[in-house]
């Protein structure tokens, strides 16, 4: 069955540079610099990326950063906790908007 997402497209990411190579070069240079060891380790950065990948629900990113996390030495319990962190933030972001709901409802109500 045809789908919009194909795992074999992930290694083709660099092909995005074919029509706009200068912009792609800048993007990939920046991308690689972001994930290099800095104040945070590569392992920590991969865990953040994995968590964010779940928030933006990108299957390519989830595939890539699950592998990256394992290859940087993380284990499944750490990776699962990272997903819970973004889930908490995402859920919290919804829930905190309930205050707006309450404010509006209070203003309209007797």
């Amino acid at each position: 069955m045809e789908t919009y997402y194909n795992p074999e497209d992930l290694p083709k990411f660099e092909e995005i540079g074919k029509e706009a190579p200068a912009l792609a070069q800048k993007f990939f240079d920046y991308y690689n610099a972001v994930f290099a060891e800095g104040e945070l380790t590569e392992r920590e950065k991969a865990l953040i990326a994995l968590a964010v990948a779940h928030t933006i629900q990108c299957p390519y990113c989830i595939d890539a950063y699950t592998q990256a996390c394992l290859e940087k030495g993380s284990h499944l319990a750490e990776m699962t906790e990272a997903v819970h962190v973004v889930t908490a933030i995402r859920g919290g972001a919804s829930l905190v908007h309930g205050i707006q709901m309450r404010n509006i409802a209070q203003k309209l109500s007797m």
């Binding site: 380790t41 590569e42 394992l70 290859e71 940087k72 284990h75």
Partner: peptide, 17 residues
């Protein structure tokens, strides 16, 4: 050794950890 079908981490970083 990795516990699956993936490559090992950088030796220097994992040794520290």
């Amino acid at each position: 050794n990795p516990t699956g079908a993936f490559l090992p981490p950088s030796q220097e970083q994992i040794e520290k950890r």
